[in-house]
């Protein structure tokens, strides 16, 4: 496996959220995603990175180039060490919020990617995995 196919970005401050966005943009441009697809993926990354920072007390994002039999994609994994989410279904609903935001973070970013997976264990943290296919 080529080392250039994966990268880890720490998420500890709000500047890291900006950095995460820029990294995802770079990768998406390199993989020749269309401008709309780039924008969707970067926006989803921004939402999820902010979630990891605000609700998960920080963590990191792993960017990885993936492929299945027919197409290429970009996979982003967000891991935090926060309190976890006790009701994942409720958290995915639009308007659900605990942080005073609009509650579009999780549900909204799910609509911006093709695959969306969330694993959470109360007390241990949350891992969100998303893939956007080209």
């Amino acid at each position: 496996m080529k080392s250039a196919k994966q990268e880890t970005v720490p998420i500890a401050t709000s500047s890291d959220v900006v950095m995460a966005r820029q990294k995802v943009r770079q990768w998406a441009i390199e993989m020749k995603f269309t401008l709309v697809d780039q924008t969707k993926l970067v926006t989803a990354a921004s939402e999820l990175a902010r979630n990891a920072l605000e609700h998960g007390k920080g963590g990191h994002m792993v960017i990885e180039q993936v492929e299945n039999s027919v197409k290429n994609g970009l996979k982003l994994v967000f891991e935090d060490r926060g309190p976890g989410i006790s009701d994942v279904d409720a958290a995915l609903r639009d308007g659900f919020t605990t942080g005073g935001g609009m509650g579009l973070g999780l549900g909204g970013s799910k609509r911006l990617v093709n695959d969306f997976q969330i694993e959470s264990e109360p007390g241990k943290g949350t891992r969100v995995t998303v893939v956007r296919w080209k």
């Binding site: 924008t39 969707k40 926006t43 639009d94 579009l104 549900g107 909204g108 970013s109 609509r111 911006l112």
Partner: peptide, 13 residues
């Protein structure tokens, strides 16, 4: 920008 508008709508805003 168009791409931003499309994304924002998809996001639900």
């Amino acid at each position: 920008q168009p791409a931003v508008a499309i994304t924002l709508v998809e996001l639900g805003m």
